[in-house]
Amino acid sequence: MRIVIAGGHGQIALRLERLLSARGHEVTGVIRNPDHGADVREAGAEPVVVDLESATAEEVTAVLRHADAAVFAAGAGPGSGIPRKDTVDRGAAVLFAAAAERAGVRRFLVVSSMGADARHAGESQFDAYLRAKGAADDYVRSRQNLDWTILRPGGLTNDAGTGLVRLSASTGRGTVPRDDVAATLAELIDTPGTAGLTLELISGSDPVIVAVRNVAGN
Score class of each variant (00 low, 15 high):
R2Y: 13
R2E: 09
R2W: 09
I3S: 07
I3E: 02
I3P: 02
V4L: 10
V4C: 03
H9A: 15
I12E: 13
R15L: 15
L16F: 10
E17R: 01
E17F: 02
R18C: 10
S21F: 09
A22N: 10
R23F: 01
R23S: 14
G24V: 06
G24C: 03
T28E: 05
G29I: 02
V30K: 02
V30P: 06
V30L: 04
I31E: 04
R32G: 10
D35V: 11
H36W: 10
R41F: 05
G44R: 10
A45Y: 03
E46S: 14
V48I: 14
D51C: 08
A55G: 10
A57K: 13
A57R: 14
E58G: 11
E58I: 08
E59K: 05
E59T: 03
E59F: 06
V63H: 05
R65T: 15
R65W: 02
R65S: 13
H66I: 00
F72W: 13
A74V: 07
G75A: 13
G77L: 09
P78C: 07
P78L: 14
G79P: 00
G81T: 12
P83A: 11
K85F: 15
D86S: 08
T87L: 14
G91S: 11
A92P: 06
F96V: 06
A97Y: 06
A99V: 05
A100I: 00
G104A: 13
G104E: 11
R106W: 05
R107E: 01
F108P: 01
F108K: 04
V110S: 07
V110A: 01
V111I: 12
A116P: 01
D117S: 05
A118Q: 15
A118N: 01
E123G: 00
L130K: 12
A132S: 11
K133R: 11
K133L: 03
Y139R: 04
R143K: 08
Q144C: 03
W148F: 14
T149H: 01
R152D: 01
P153G: 02
G155Q: 02
L156N: 04
T157Q: 07
T157C: 07
A160G: 05
T162I: 07
G163P: 01
A169G: 14
G174Q: 06
T175P: 00
T175Y: 08
V176T: 10
P177C: 08
R178M: 09
D179N: 06
A183S: 14
T184C: 09
L185A: 11
E187I: 10
L188N: 04
I189L: 15
D190S: 15
T191A: 15
A195G: 13
T198E: 14
L199H: 07
L199P: 01
L201N: 03
S203A: 15
S203D: 09
S205E: 15
P207T: 12
I209K: 13
I209D: 14
I209A: 11
V212F: 02
R213F: 07
V215E: 05
